[in-house]
Each structure stands twice: as C-alpha cells, then as structure tokens.
Simulated assay, not measured.
Amino acid sequence: MIDIATLNHRYPDGKLALDSIDLSIKKGEFVVIAGRNGSGKSTLVRHMNALLLPTSGFVKVNGLCTTKKANLLNIRKTVGMVFQNPDSQFVGMTIEEDVAFGLENTQVAHEKIKPLVDNVLKLMELHEYRKCSPRSLSGGQRQKVAISGVLVMEPEYIVFDEVTSMLDPISRLEVLATIKQINEKGITIIHVTHRLEEAVNADRLIVMNSGKIALDGAPHEIFLHPDLLSKYGLELPPLMELSRKLFNAGIIKDGIVLSKEELVEELCQSI
C-alpha cells in the first residue's frame, strides 16, 4: 500500500504545491489522478517514489517511509516512474540495451538479464525492434520502450505521469491499452492525465485542485459532477458531456455512455 498522511510540499520559491494530502492506494488498484495545470498532481506522484520529499507529513510505500535514506533503493524498485517525454529516459544505443540498463545498474546477474529483457519486449510487442535505436521509433513505440525499462524491474506500482500528452490519437490508444494490460497482471497503476476519457477503465478517479484532493471516487460518479469544467478545469469529451446532460434531464438512465452505439441504445430504451 502507498499511504500518505497530512502531506504538504512547499517549493523553494514559497509556493505551497500540496496542502494536507491524505491518500491510500491499495495494491492492484488502477487510479487516475486528474486536474488542471498547477493543481499538484505531478508533485503528488513524485512523492510516491521519493523523487520529492515532504515539507511535512509522510509518505510510506509498503510501510517504508520515503524520508529515510536507507529505504530509497527499495522504494524506487517498488514504485516505477514513466514520464511525459520518453526520450528523456533513454540511455542505451539500442532498445534492448536501454531496457537492460536498470537491471545492469542494480547488478542483476548477466545471464539473467537477456531472458528478462526478451520477455518484456515480447510482451510489449517490441522484440523485433530490439536492435533498433529507440529514437527511430514512433512516439507510441518510444513510450512503450520507456515503459519496458520500468516493467523489466518488476515493480509493484507504476506511476505514469502525463505519458499520453505528446502522442497522436492512435499511439495514445495503444499506450492506454498497454497500461490496462499491465494492471491486469496485478501491478498497481497511478496514471496522471488531464484527459478524463482516460479514466474510463480506472477503479478510482482523483481530481486535484489547488494542491488538494477535491474529488475521489468511481469515475462514472465523478463524471456526473456539475463543476468539473467550471471549478476544476476538466472537460468531458463531447459524447460523454451530451450523455451527462441527457441523464440530468431524465432522458436516459445511465449517466455516462462511452460510444455512439451505447447512446443510441440508451435513447431507444427511453422511448
């Protein structure tokens, strides 16, 4: 479990980025954290593997406090991080070298590294590109290489910090499908995004606002909140917004639908 209590974070310029955060994330959960720019969501997740340390309060990962230096190696093995720009994470000349880097850096036996790397690259459908430079691939494939480098370390939790924001629509869907697949293998997912549609398959949706947790619940419940745009700066996709309005008007029974086919079916049933 990731356990956070009364967490405050103040940057050197005096800005209070996190204000008394209380949060627990259980193993196996798929949690999406959303919010407008500057809401504190990226600051929050950087505390989960001790990239940032609390000004006050505490963060514990499986009972290990992030402020104790002796815990840092175990915490960073337990909580993997994937960032917005995959190019910033590449260190190897080829994909297989890049994915192997973390294992080599933690002194995993040489004979064990290749099978582990091969297994992850096959899972991520990258094995045929293993001798290529990661920078020669598409945006979605580069992001999958970055994910592979974290996944090969066998973390219990993976934080995805705005990993889809620089991708085209097709690549974004591919990466989202990969994230869902990873969660189905029992790895806890914490996915930071400003796109509410990316929370559809999540167990929980947490909305940040001004350094605080404003909303925390099942995505379909949060989608119905009347202040998502006006108060929290989050916009539903047009189809989901239309279905919310139809639900609030009593025309359909389900609050949010995810496809045109679902909406047509709901409207037919309401006639």
Results as ranks from 00 to 15, higher is better:
Leu23Met: 15
Val79Arg: 13
Lys144Ser: 12
Ala17Ser: 15
Gly80His: 01
Ser165Cys: 07
Pro169Asn: 07
Gly63Ile: 06
Met1Pro: 15
Arg10Asp: 00
Gly102Met: 10
Leu234Pro: 09
Gly139His: 06
Val159Gly: 09
Lys27Ser: 14
Leu53Phe: 04
Glu156Ala: 14
Thr67Asn: 11
Lys144Ile: 06
Glu265Asn: 11
Ser138Gln: 06
Val108Phe: 02
Ile95Ser: 07
Leu263Thr: 04
Val79Lys: 08
Val192Asn: 08
Asp19Ile: 06
Arg46Leu: 12
Gln141Tyr: 02
His225Leu: 04
Gln143Tyr: 02
Pro12Arg: 03
Ala199Ser: 15
Val192Ile: 15
Ser42Glu: 07
Pro12Lys: 05
Pro115Arg: 11
Asp13Lys: 08
Ile147Val: 14
Leu16Gln: 14
Glu128Cys: 00
Leu224Phe: 00
Glu156Trp: 02
Ile25His: 01
Phe30Met: 13
Lys15Ile: 14
Pro54Ile: 05
Gln107Tyr: 09
Lys68Ile: 14
Met240Arg: 01
Gly92Leu: 03
Asn119Val: 01
Gln89Phe: 06
Leu258Phe: 13
Phe101Gln: 06
Pro155Leu: 02
Asn105Val: 01
Ser138Phe: 03
Ser133Gln: 09
Pro238Gln: 05
Arg142Lys: 15
Lys231Phe: 00
Ser230Glu: 15
Arg130Thr: 08
Phe83Glu: 04
Leu151Thr: 04
Leu239Asp: 06
Thr178Arg: 03
Ile75Phe: 00
Phe101Glu: 06
Asp203Arg: 04
Leu234Ser: 02
Lys26Met: 12
Lys77Gly: 11
Ser24Gln: 14
Phe223Gly: 02
His225Asn: 15
Met208Asp: 07
Cys132His: 13
Asn201Tyr: 08
Leu23Gly: 08
Ser24Lys: 13
Ser230Val: 10
Leu103Gly: 11
Ala5Lys: 15
Asn71Cys: 05
His225Glu: 08
Met124Ile: 07
Glu96Phe: 00
Glu261Trp: 00
Cys132Thr: 10
Lys212Glu: 14
Val200Ser: 11
Val257Ile: 11
His127Thr: 01
Arg195Ile: 00
Met1His: 12
Lys180Arg: 14
Tyr157Arg: 11
Ile21Asn: 12
Ile213His: 02
Val91Ala: 10
Val79His: 07
Met93His: 12
Leu173Val: 13
Glu262Lys: 03
Asp161Cys: 03
Leu196Thr: 03
His220Tyr: 05
Ser171Gly: 15
Val192Ser: 01
Ser42His: 00
Met81Tyr: 07
Asn201Arg: 09
Met48Thr: 14
Met208Lys: 01
Leu236Asp: 08
Asp118Glu: 15
Asp216Gly: 07
Leu72Cys: 00
Gly80Leu: 02
Tyr157Asp: 09
Glu235Ile: 10
Leu137Asp: 08
Lys212Ile: 03
Pro54Thr: 09
Leu44Ala: 04
Glu266Val: 04
Glu174Asn: 15
Gln141Lys: 14
Arg204Lys: 12
Phe30Val: 11
Glu221Asn: 10
Leu126Lys: 05
Gly63Met: 08
Ala199Thr: 13
Leu126Glu: 04
Pro12Ile: 03
Arg135Cys: 09
Asn105His: 02
Ser230Met: 03
Ala146Tyr: 01
Gly102Asp: 07
Glu104Pro: 06
Val175Ala: 10
Val61Trp: 05
Ala34Val: 09
Lys253Arg: 13
Pro169Gln: 05
